[in-house]
Nucleic acid binder design. Sequence first.
DNA 1: AATGAATGAGTGTTCATTCAT
DNA 2: AATGAATGAACACTCATTCAT
Lengths: 206, 206, 206, 206
Amino acid sequence: MKPEKSKRKPGRPKASESPGTMTQLLRTASFLFMEHGYEKVSLETVAQTCGVTKASVYYYFSNKAVLFTEALLFVLKMAYDQTAAVIEGPGTLKERLQEVARRHMRNQHVDFETMMREAATDLNEEQIRTVREREADIHRLLERVFAKAMDEGEMKRSDPLLLSHAFVAMMTVRNRNEIVNDVRTAGQAAEEIVQLIWVGIAPPHS
Amino acid sequence: MKPEKSKRKPGRPKASESPGTMTQLLRTASFLFMEHGYEKVSLETVAQTCGVTKASVYYYFSNKAVLFTEALLFVLKMAYDQTAAVIEGPGTLKERLQEVARRHMRNQHVDFETMMREAATDLNEEQIRTVREREADIHRLLERVFAKAMDEGEMKRSDPLLLSHAFVAMMTVRNRNEIVNDVRTAGQAAEEIVQLIWVGIAPPHS
Amino acid sequence: MKPEKSKRKPGRPKASESPGTMTQLLRTASFLFMEHGYEKVSLETVAQTCGVTKASVYYYFSNKAVLFTEALLFVLKMAYDQTAAVIEGPGTLKERLQEVARRHMRNQHVDFETMMREAATDLNEEQIRTVREREADIHRLLERVFAKAMDEGEMKRSDPLLLSHAFVAMMTVRNRNEIVNDVRTAGQAAEEIVQLIWVGIAPPHS
Amino acid sequence: MKPEKSKRKPGRPKASESPGTMTQLLRTASFLFMEHGYEKVSLETVAQTCGVTKASVYYYFSNKAVLFTEALLFVLKMAYDQTAAVIEGPGTLKERLQEVARRHMRNQHVDFETMMREAATDLNEEQIRTVREREADIHRLLERVFAKAMDEGEMKRSDPLLLSHAFVAMMTVRNRNEIVNDVRTAGQAAEEIVQLIWVGIAPPHS
DNA sequence: AATGAATGAGTGTTCATTCAT
DNA sequence: AATGAATGAACACTCATTCAT
C-alpha cells in the first residue's frame, strides 16, 4: 500500500501507451479498490500508480466517492458483459457456470458487499443506488438464466435469485490460501465449486 | 501504523488486572470490528462505546493490531464452541447444518477474509498466523464432521475442506437486502441455503 | 500565491484583443470580489460565471492579484464617476449626500479596507498603491466638496477628510439585518444615516 | 501570515506562564481572527503561534468553525463588559462615548460583518445565531443608553439602534492610514469621530 | 487502574498557476 | 483567442500512539 515511485515504461511502447489518463485512472482505481477495498486505497496511491499527481485525479473525478462509484460501474459493466457472453453462449449449463466461475475467480478481490458497507458513509443515495442497480443486473441476468433452465428441466427448482447470490458468494473461496494454493489453482477450485453446488451434498441413495 | 513490536507479554494476564473493563473492551471491539471492519473502527469509538478513554484501551492492549487480534480470537473461540456444540450435537446432519447456518446468520458481519486483508498491513506474522489458525480450526472442525459423514454414507463424497469454506462463504448472502428482507428472514435464508447445497442444482432426472 | 511578477504590459491593450470577454471578466470579478471578498472568490468561479475556462482568465490577467487590482480599479472608477456626478450636481448638499448614500447602499458589499487587508499579502507594492490612490481620489473628491461647503457656510467646520471616511464607513450599516430589513429599505437607511450625521446627536438646547 | 517557528519564553517565567493551553489558543485565535479575518487564519498558524501542533488545536476545538465561534464569543464578551463598564460609568455622555471609541479603536480589526460573511458558509445556524446574539447585545446596550439619554434630554431624538450601528461602523476609520497615522493617533481620531457625530455637520445657523 | 494532553503522519480537498496546443 | 491537462502548495481534519501523572 505504500505507493512506490514507478518510472514506468516496462510494458508496451508508444502508440497504445496512452489510452487517456482518465481511462487509466479508472482502470487503476477499479483494480485497487477491488483488491484492497475502499478505505485502504488512497487517492495518492491511485495517482502515483498512474504516474500522475493527486490533483490530477481531482481534475477528472470530483472526489473519492465519485472515483469509487465510476470505478465500480466500470468493473460491473465488464463483469456483466463477460458473464452474459459466457452464460448465454454455447455449452451445457454446467460448463457455462464453470466458465463464469473460472473468470470470476481469476483475480483476487474483496467481498463486494463488505466494500460497499465500507464506502457507504461517503457515497450519496444516488451513487449507492446506481452501483447496486448495476450489481443487481448481474444477479438478475443469472436469475433469468436459472429460471429458464428450471423451466426447461435443465435444473432443479429453487429460488433462482437466491441461487445467484449463493453462487457468487461461493467464489470468494478463491481468496483462501487453504483452498487456492500451490496444489489447487483457481481454475480447479472454480470447477470443484460448480461441481459441489451442481450435485449437492446429500447422500447418493437418499 | 508502525506496529511490529508487541510488548504485551503473551498468556493470560494476572488475575489482579481488572477483568471487567478488559473483557468489556474485548467484547465491544469484537462486535464493532465484525460489524464494520478494521479500518472503520477507531480506538476512540471502542473506548467511547465502553465509557472509557482512548488511553485506557492502550492500558490493556498495546496497540490497535493487538486489540484486533485478541478481539478476533475472542469471537473465533465463541464461534468454534457454538459450532462444535451444534454440529456434534443431536439431530440429522442436515438439521445440524441448518442450525449452524441460522446462528451464523443471526448478525450481519463483514466478510472475514476481506477484513483480514484490510488489517494485514498492520498485523505482524504471528498475529496473522494465530488468527488464521483459530479460523482454520473451525474449518477443520467442519471438515472432520463432513469427512466422517462421507465415510458413514450420510453425505456424498467431495473435498470436505473446500465444502467447509464454500458453506461458510454462502452465509454472506445474509448481508444482501435482496435476499434477507421483509419477506424472508435470516432464519429462512439459512434453511434455504442449506437446502440448496444439500440437494444441488442438477436436474432431477440426470 | 507567488505573485510579484506581473508580466502584463501596462496601458490599454491592443484594440484587437477582444474587449468583450475581458470586460465581462472584469465586470464579473468586480461584482464577485465586492460581494464576497478576495479569498472567497476563486478564479474558477469567475471563469464559470463568465462561461469561459480558468485558463482564459489567465489569458487576460496574468494572475489573481492583477485581476483583483484591475477589477477594483474598475469599480473605483465607476464609483468615482457616479459620486462626482451626484455630488457636484444640483440640489442642496444634504440632498446630494443622500443620493450618494443611496447609490452606495444599493448593493451589499464587504468592507473595502477589510478586503484590501485580505488581499494585501498577494498584491505587490505598486498594486496596493494604485488601488489606494484611486480610493483616495474618492475621499479627496468628497474632501474638496466638504471643504468648499465649509468655506461657503453650508456646513459646520471639521476635518473634511475625516468626515469623508466616517461618512463612507457609516454606509456599511447597509449590511446589518437589524437595520436594513423588511421595515426599512436601504434607501430609507441612507436617508436616516445622512440625517444623523447632518444634525448630530447633541441635545437641541446645548 | 507565515507562522514563524517561535522558541517562546521571552516573557514572564514559570508560575503564570501557562494559563492553560485552551485559554491561550482562544486568546491567540481571537486576536488573529480579528486581525486577519476567518479564511486567512489557518489552524496551523494558530497552533504554531501558541507553540503547539495543529492536532492540539483539534484536541480542544472540534473544528475551525467551533474555534472561530468560541473565539468570537470570547472577544464579544470582553467587548461587552468593557463597553458596559465605561458607558454606564461616570462622566458626561459625550465623555463616555469618547472613552468607548478610544478603547474600540485601540487595536486594528477587520469589519465584523465582513468577517461573519466570510465565515458564514462554515458555521451552522446555531453558531451564527449565537455570535450574532452576543454582538446584538452590545448594540442593545448602546441602544438602551441612547434611548435613556434621549428621554432625559441628554441627546437629540433619533433611532437609537441605528445610531448604535452607525457609531460602531465609524470606528473602522481607525484602519485607514490617511486618518490614523503619525500626526493623528487612534485616540485623537476617536475623539474627533465622537465630536463629529455629536455636533453633526449642519451649518451652525441652520 | 486510568487518564488528559499532546503529537506525527497521513488523507481528502481546493486553488492559483503553468504550458503545450 | 482560448483551452485541456497537469501540478505544487496549502489546508481542514483524523487517528494511532506516547507519556507524565
